[in-house]
Amino acid sequence: MTQDPSRQPDQPSRYQAEQYPQAQYPQAQYPQAQYPQSQYPAPYPQGYPQASPVHGGYPAMRGVDQRTVVVKRPVAVSVGSVFWLLTALSWPVGTVVRLAVERPPSSFGTIVTLFVTGCLAIGGIVGAVYFHNGSHQARLVLCGSWFVVEIVALGMLVSALRETVEAGTLAVLVARLAFPLVAAVCGFLPGTRHHFSGS
């Protein structure tokens, strides 16, 4: 049998193609399964809002994300903060008023008194600011420390009542006793607990 020169090496000859035809297999056809659609809506939204630039806020955040809840400060806390400030200022200012009314001779003790009352006022002002911002520790420290100071102020008032004192001196001593009492009571009134619960 002669080989056809025009046939490629990998192609079968004409004789082989006639003797051995390629088998034809029927292709199976499978029906596609039909699943019922869910009748319940999706539990989450299909589309999400895109972030957009916000004037005066963060550009990568939505407007709803930048809304903050403002907790209203109780009125009793604001009043207590004012009286804690008055308590702190009553010592250095009261000392100056007593010196102006009584006019004692200048001495080293007067300078020391002004220095000590000034330091006491600075501590009281810092504590009043923390108290105003809702610090529970500041409330306890103010009440505890000024309780000790009240004992000193009460002793000064009793000593002054035994003598003849000026009206200005008596007013200073009474103010030093009354201001911290009002401030402490305002800090523990009903409705102020939630303001100090965050610290």
Results as ranks from 00 to 15, higher is better:
T87Y: 02
P53H: 05
E102M: 07
P45E: 01
V77F: 05
R14H: 11
Q22T: 15
K72Y: 05
Y40Q: 08
Y48K: 14
V79C: 04
A42G: 04
G57K: 06
V70F: 03
A60H: 06
Q27A: 15
S13I: 05
T110Q: 09
A33R: 08
G56K: 11
R14F: 13
S106R: 15
P12A: 15
Q24F: 02
A88W: 01
A60L: 13
A51N: 09
V75C: 04
Y44Q: 13
G80F: 02
L86K: 02
V101C: 09
P26G: 07
A33D: 11
V112Y: 08
A28T: 12
D65L: 10
V82W: 01
V93T: 04
S107A: 12
P36T: 05
Q32S: 09
G47V: 12
A51W: 02
L89N: 00
R73P: 01
V75I: 07
R103D: 15
E102F: 08
I111S: 14
P74N: 06
V96H: 00
Y58M: 11
R73E: 03
S106L: 13
A42K: 08
Y35C: 11
V116R: 01
Q39N: 09
Y35K: 09
L114Q: 13
G80W: 01
V96Q: 03
F83D: 05
Q24N: 02
S52K: 15
T113D: 02
Q22F: 10
F83M: 13
S78N: 10
R98L: 06
Y40K: 03
P104K: 05
S13W: 08
Q19M: 14
V79R: 02
Q19I: 08
L114V: 14
P53T: 09
T68W: 04
A42E: 10
V82E: 00
A88E: 01
Q32G: 13
L86V: 07
T110K: 12
G109T: 07
A33Q: 09
L99E: 00
V82R: 01
Y40S: 11
